[in-house]
Amino acid sequence: MIKSNLLICLIRTLQSIGRRTIDRLWRLGAGARLFLLTIIYSGESFRRFHLTIREIYSTGVMSLLIVVVSAFFVGMVLALQGYYTLQKYGSSEAIGVLVALSLLRELGPVVTALLFAGRAGTAITAEIGLMKATEQLSAMEMMAVSPIARVVAPRFWAGVISMPLLALLFSMVGILGGYIVAVPLIGVDEGAFWSQMQANVDIREDIINGVIKSIVFGVACTMIALFEGFDAPPTAEGVSRATTRTVVTSSLAVLGLDFVLTSFMLAV
C-alpha cells in the first residue's frame, strides 16, 4: 500500500517536471518566434521612425532619473568601500581604477539592466498585456495593421538603443560619484585618481565590452518584457503575473548572460 502510494507520488512529480519542461520549452520557442518576427517587421516600423522615438522617450528618458540617482550612490559606495580596503595596502590612489573598472565592466551594464527591467520592462509588459486584454491588438489586426510592426518592433528597438546609452550614463555618473567621495571627501590626490584610471582603463577591453554587454542586455530585457506582455492571459490577474515574471526572468537572464559574456570576453 505504502509502496504504491510512493510510486504514484513519484509519477506525479515526474509528470509535473515534464509538464514544466514542456511549458518552458514552448515559451522559449514562442519567444524566439516573436523575436524573429520582430526582426522581420523592423523594416516596416523603421519607415515610421517617430514611433520608435516615442518609445525611446517612454523607456529611455523616463528611466533616466532612477539610473542617474542609483549610479551616483553606487559610485560613492564603491569609492568608500574601495578606499577602506585599499588604504590597508597603502594604495589608495588605485581607487579611481577600482571605481572605473567595476563600473565600466560590470556594474554599469548589469545594474542598469536590472533597473531597466524594473522600470521600463514592467511598463512594457503591462501596457501590451492591457492592449491585448482590451482587444486593441485585435482591433489593429482587423485594421490590417500588424501589431508586431506597430507595437512590438518600435518598443524593441527603443529598448536596444536606450540600454547602452543608460549604461554609459550610469558609468559616467558613477565615476563622478566615486570622484566626489575619493577626492574632496577622503582626500585622495586628484592627479593620481585620474592618471591611474587612465593608465589602466582600456577603451576596447573595458568601455567597448561594457557597451556590447549592455546591448545584449537590452535585447534580452526588452524581448522578455514584450513576450510576457504578448503572452499574458487577458485578465487583470494574468497581466499582473506577467509583469512579475518580466522582472524575475529579465533579472535572471541578465545575470546569466553576464557570466557567459564575461567569460567570452576574458577568453578572447
Partner: peptide, 12 residues
Amino acid sequence: ALLGLAIKVGNL
C-alpha cells in the same frame, strides 16, 4: 558620456 569616458577615463 561615451566620449567623456573615452577621453577622461580611458585616455583615448
